[in-house]
Simulated assay, not measured.
Amino acid sequence: MKKLGLAILCLLQFSCSSQATKKINGVSFVASREEVAQEHVDAVLAVHANHAAVMPFGFIRNISSPQIIHNTDRQWFGETKKGAQQYVDMLHKNGISVLIKPQIWISQGEFTGTLKMDSEEDWKLLEASYEDFIITYAELAEETQADIFCIGTELEQFVKNRPRFWSELIAKIRKVYDGKLTYAANWDEYTRTPFWGEIDYIGIDAYFPLSEDKNPTKDGLKKGWQKWKPAIAELSKKKGKPVLFTEFGYRSMNFTAKKPWLVDRHEAEVNLDAQVNATQAIFEEFWTEDWFAGGYVWKWFIAHEEVGGADDNRFTPQNKPAEKTLKEWYQKS
């Protein structure tokens, strides 16, 4: 009987250990005009994803404006609080954990990292507007028991110029949301982000340049990671925090790893193999590391059957060979 009890205890310990080391195998679940239906979630389950990032949006009219417009009836359903809640509820119903990741879109596609005010008055207005925006979704994260909440995405100049605001904002978020916190720093920003010690994950949008080759190989891309990986690991060790790739992914095109952050309508030739090689390389380099928590592939559209495919050179892996790579790694990690 004692031996049986010991065997059960060992089995439970092994099970708990396996659960503790389970990676966050996520998709960036793009906001849509529509509600999420079961068939949309089925496609996420089919690639063995266990997490999804839900991304409501706020909008800024121009790069110098301090006002963030959000949660209005002029936005797409999935970009609003009501829509984000419906998405979270459907994902949770299917056993998929959720990161709520509010994001900002600046008119003309201006990069959010350059958002910077010209006067103290405008800084104060931006801070008040951003706090209203982010607390709205922190409260939603608590109401829906979302698993992780992201306090911002690629806002380097805002963070750099107003560090006290961000520390105070984190404290305010903690008062309304009891879960884990992260921040999505751009790949060239994360080393200067000042508040990693105050949140739970070091979040990085992992668009690191890895290769200038037109058709990069997996081994060449793994070699390219050696320029960046040691510093990422060292920061994790220094701060005592796991690293989470709040976004990762590659376009299915030539030169995919030269400037992986490209989001324009650049019509480079479709290269499905390059996307597979880059996806395989990032999994091999990071998903086996104890200090690495996992990540969310960019992008995953809810209407699975209507997107991606062999003629698509955009980020989504859907209906491309890279989807199989994603599925294989998510199934085993």
Results as ranks from 00 to 15, higher is better:
Leu4Ile: 14
Leu4His: 08
Leu4Trp: 04
Cys10Asn: 05
Cys16Ile: 13
Ala20Leu: 09
Lys23Ile: 04
Asn25Gly: 08
Ser32Leu: 00
Val36His: 00
Ala37Thr: 07
Glu39Pro: 01
Val41Gly: 03
Val41Ser: 05
Asp42Gly: 09
Ala43Gly: 11
Leu45Pro: 00
Ala46Asn: 15
Ala49Met: 11
Asn50Trp: 08
His51Val: 11
Val54Lys: 02
Gly58Asn: 06
Phe59Pro: 06
Pro66Tyr: 02
Ile68Ser: 05
Thr72His: 11
Gln75Thr: 03
Trp76Pro: 01
Glu79Phe: 08
Lys81Phe: 07
Gly83Pro: 04
Ala84Met: 10
Gln86Phe: 08
Tyr87Lys: 08
Asp89Ile: 04
Met90Glu: 14
Leu91Met: 04
Ser97Met: 09
Pro102Leu: 11
Gln103Asn: 10
Trp105Gly: 03
Gly109Thr: 08
Thr112Met: 02
Lys116Ala: 13
Met117Gln: 15
Ser119Leu: 13
Asp122Ala: 12
Trp123Leu: 06
Leu126Gln: 08
Leu126Met: 14
Glu131Gln: 15
Tyr137Phe: 15
Ala141Trp: 00
Thr144Asp: 04
Asp147Trp: 02
Ile151Gln: 00
Leu155Tyr: 06
Asn161His: 12
Asn161Val: 03
Trp166Ala: 10
Ser167Tyr: 13
Ser167Glu: 15
Ser167Thr: 14
Ser167Gly: 14
Glu168Ser: 06
Glu168Ile: 03
Ile170Gln: 01
Ile170His: 01
Lys175Gln: 15
Gly179Ser: 10
Thr182Glu: 06
Ala185Phe: 11
Asp188Met: 11
Phe195Pro: 01
Trp196His: 03
Ile199Gln: 07
Gly203Met: 07
Gly203Lys: 06
Ile204Gln: 10
Asp205Glu: 14
Tyr207Leu: 04
Phe208Arg: 07
Leu210Ser: 11
Asp213Ala: 15
Asn215His: 14
Pro216Cys: 09
Gly220Ile: 12
Leu221Pro: 04
Lys222Phe: 03
Lys222Tyr: 01
Lys227Asn: 13
Ile232Asp: 13
Leu244Val: 01
Glu247Met: 03
Tyr250Ser: 02
Met253Asn: 13
Asn254Ser: 06
Thr256Ile: 11
Ala257Trp: 03
Asp264His: 06
Arg265Ile: 08
Arg265Asp: 15
Ala274Trp: 01
Thr279Asp: 11
Ile282Gly: 06
Phe283Val: 06
Glu284Ile: 04
Glu284Val: 05
Glu289Gln: 15
Asp290Ile: 06
Phe292Asn: 12
Gly294Phe: 02
Gly295Cys: 15
Val297Glu: 06
Val297Ile: 15
Trp298Gly: 03
Trp300Asn: 00
Phe301Trp: 06
Phe301His: 11
Ala303Lys: 15
Glu306Phe: 04
Gly309Trp: 00
Asp311Lys: 14
Gln318Pro: 02
Gln318Ala: 09
Asn319Thr: 10
Ala322Ser: 14
Ala322Glu: 10
Ala322Leu: 05
Lys324Gly: 08
Trp329Asn: 13
Gln331Val: 03
